[in-house]
């Protein structure tokens, strides 16, 4: 037992470690994302949400984290692909009759399919909001809030004004003026389409099943499986990441869709 051992990340366990760490990081992002997005339910014509959107896209530490996030998504997907290919190669001839349901859960055996659904969703999701917000066209909104009374006037248009040079916030004569891209309206606009709403709901279902297995599996991969706390890990995996978060996300498109009717 003295020969040199392989570097950690090239081993099957190392690759699983990467899956586990990126996966858990993505889980933590889901929590933040959900909390931020809850502002969509505020009845303030998007004031809070749009400010939040600007903050999230322009505050440097958060920008750094967001790039980590993108990297995690890519790494998680790429390593999933590598592992899946290796795992397929480990059984070149399959079974004529397979009774997987007798010994394991469907979602645990189909993380790749679930993940692919989520990935497709992510691409459309990014296109709908991130791309539009950064590079595309969005509606425009200006909030004029009297600081003394809190009364707010809203000036909105479907296109950005030609002199729009970016998000501004300033106070003029006791009135706080916010000029911003109106991502809130963009959200409302996108979710008028029932097919997109359906896509989002399917994707959230996929996310739910992905995380019911994935969350606790990540802990198992990291070596955390002890009777003292494994119940808690499983509970969080199922209730928080498998049920509460996907349902909360799914209510957003539904909320806007029904609002638009």
């Amino acid at each position: 037992m003295s020969s040199k051992s392989k570097p950690v990340l090239t081993s099957s366990l190392g690759k699983k470690l990467i899956m586990s760490l990126t996966g858990l990081f993505l889980c933590s992002f889901l929590v933040v994302h959900l909390i931020g997005n809850l502002q969509l339910f505020k009845d303030d014509a998007g004031y809070a949400f749009n400010n939040y959107a600007y903050f999230m896209t322009h505050f440097t530490p958060i920008k750094v984290v967001s790039y980590l996030l993108y990297a995690s998504i890519v790494i998680h997907a790429v390593y999933a692909l590598i592992l899946t290919r290796q795992n397929k190669a480990a059984r070149p001839v399959g079974y004529y009759k397979s009774s997987g349901n007798e010994n394991s859960k469907w979602n645990s055996r189909n993380m790749g399919i679930l993940g692919t659904v989520i990935l497709v969703f992510l691409v459309t999701h990014m296109q709908h909001f991130w791309w539009q917000y950064k590079f595309g066209t969005t509606p425009y909104v200006e909030y004029q809030t009297e600081l003394a009374t809190g009364n707010r006037q809203i000036i909105a248009s479907d296109d950005l004004p030609s002199d729009y040079t970016g998000y501004k916030i300033y106070v003029n004569n006791g009135v706080e003026i916010v000029q911003s891209k109106d991502l809130y309206k963009q959200v409302a606009y996108i979710f008028q389409n029932p097919f997109i709403v359906l896509l989002y709901i399917v994707a959230m279902a996929a996310l739910a099943f992905h995380l019911i297995h994935g969350f606790q599996s990540a802990f198992q991969t990291l070596g955390f499986n002890h009777r003292r706390y494994i119940g808690l890990v499983r509970g969080i995996g199922i209730w928080v990441f498998g049920i509460i978060i996907p349902i909360a996300f799914a209510t957003m498109p539904l909320y806007f869709y029904f609002k638009s009717l």
Partner: peptide, 12 residues
Amino acid sequence: FGSCTNTGACEA
């Protein structure tokens, strides 16, 4: 051999 994706089929 392939990697472990924690399906639990082995244990079962």
